[in-house]
């Protein structure tokens, strides 16, 4: 890059300088942009990225269709110990809140075989929707850095809570109660 302007110096000095400056500015800009992107966790109060998921039962799940309902999104994997720990809690949450319109969805992360996932589901008797994430596209759009991670999406499609790491029934039910109460109030 420096050589370019070295070359152009003879013809038009200022043009070379401008090109050089612009080049460096855009270089720095791209790095800065990448840095911001990289560190942007999907913080609370941001719209949840939409996705479609084919569940292990073969059902198509589209997040768009559940606008107006509370969706709890849980990323997990059978090789992850904390995921095993929180699975029974999630199942209980599903049993308690399904009829009140809360939708629980599990998405597997970096799992090699469907069999492992199915074993996990069977082991904990999970009855909520679970599905795999080909090419990790959903995990990418939610900027997952590890499992488990849980997102609570409000009726208007915004993420209200984000839990990097494991979660338990108490925390989750508190959040859901408040959200449901807010909804009733409005």
């Amino acid at each position: 890059m420096e050589m370019i302007t070295e070359q152009k110096r003879r013809f038009s000095l200022s043009l070379g300088s401008i090109v050089l400056m612009l080049g460096i500015l855009s270089f720095v800009g791209v790095i800065g942009w990448a840095y911001i992107e990289q560190n942007r966790t999907l913080g609370e109060n941001r719209p949840a990225p939409t996705f479609t998921l084919t569940t292990f039962d073969g059902e198509e799940f589209d997040l768009e269709d559940y606008r107006g309902q509370i969706v709890v999104l849980n990323f997990w994997a059978s090789w992850c110990a904390p995921c095993h720990a929180e699975a029974p809690d999630l199942q209980r949450i599903h049993e308690r809140y399904a009829e009140r319109g809360v939708v629980l969805v599990g998405i597997t992360y970096s799992e090699t075989s469907v069999e492992d996932s199915l074993n996990f589901i069977e082991q904990y008797g999970l009855t909520y929707r679970n599905g795999a994430d080909p090419r990790m596209r959903i995990a990418d759009s939610y900027r997952i850095t590890g499992v488990p991670e849980t997102f609570v999406i409000r009726q208007d499609g915004k993420i209200v809570k984000y839990y990097p790491g494991s979660i338990n029934e108490t925390i989750l039910s508190n959040v859901l109660e408040t959200l449901l109460a807010e909804d009733n109030a409005s």
Partner: peptide, 8 residues
Amino acid sequence: PACVQWRE
């Protein structure tokens, strides 16, 4: 653990 699973 994920890698062990992948190698399997």
